[in-house]
Design a protein around this nucleic acid. Structure first.
Lengths: 116, 116
DNA sequence: TATAGTGTGTAGTATATACTACACATGAAT
DNA sequence: ATTCATGTGTAGTATATACTACACACTATA
């Protein structure tokens, strides 16, 4: 499943229950031209920029980080986190690159329970 | 200290001990025009692309991740890590955003000692 | 049967990114 | 005194990114 397909699929599903999810109305809410959204959904054009992806995924109730990833991007907010302490986070991410999901999740929980 | 200044400072220091670190020779090794490196060092132009930053930081013995960060970038290798599991790493990074260095380092060590 | 709404086709534009090619002036080396 | 190497100035180019504006044909609605 690519970016455009996922947007179309999600939007059509939403549209089947609420007319406000027509391509045109969705495009207007998101702040882009309908023709542009049309082309995005049919992969005639590459995914849009970060801001549009954010609005779109929020509008359709999709995970923004996942949508950005499907578009080949990473949120500038997360980039900022890395750039603020590049050595530290570069090291961590490289270590975690091949760690299984549950191991990473364990860390997330550990940090959440604030042990410092 | 900005990107250009750091490059110049490091290069001049190296040059004082080895003539091969002249602006021209360094530029040739890195594969760019001397005039371009000159402009980068004097911040007349913004930092170069990732590939040039990598070659440059290796040539000058600087940390690539730090150099990329100073250039407002993050290595595509690390981006790939995040994009491969966006929900997971987004969560982790947001949790760690305001964690102190030693707490993050503790995690790095923990992971390095492979506990999964 | 108007008209309102739907998705799509065509033909662009604006801005940023990442550089190149070559000439020039100054100082160091031979 | 000449050549050689140094850093810099000028004037561009190529490519990618992120869209807009408007017209068209078809479908559903009133």
């Amino acid at each position: 499943m690519n970016f455009g397909e996922l947007v179309r699929k999600s939007r059509l599903k939403a549209q089947s229950e609420d007319r406000k999810y027509s391509l045109r109305k969705t495009a207007v809410r998101v702040g882009i031209q309908p023709s542009y959204l049309s082309k995005i959904e049919r992969e005639e054009l590459p995914p849009p920029g970060e801001e549009v992806i954010c609005k779109l995924s929020e509008d359709l109730g999709l995970d923004t980080d996942v949508m950005l990833a499907m578009a080949g991007k990473v949120s500038t907010e997360l980039l900022e986190v890395i750039r603020s302490r590049p050595e530290l986070f570069a090291k961590l991410l490289r270590e975690l690159k091949s760690a299984p999901d549950h191991a990473v999740l364990k860390l997330v929980r550990e940090v959440r329970d604030g042990e410092w």
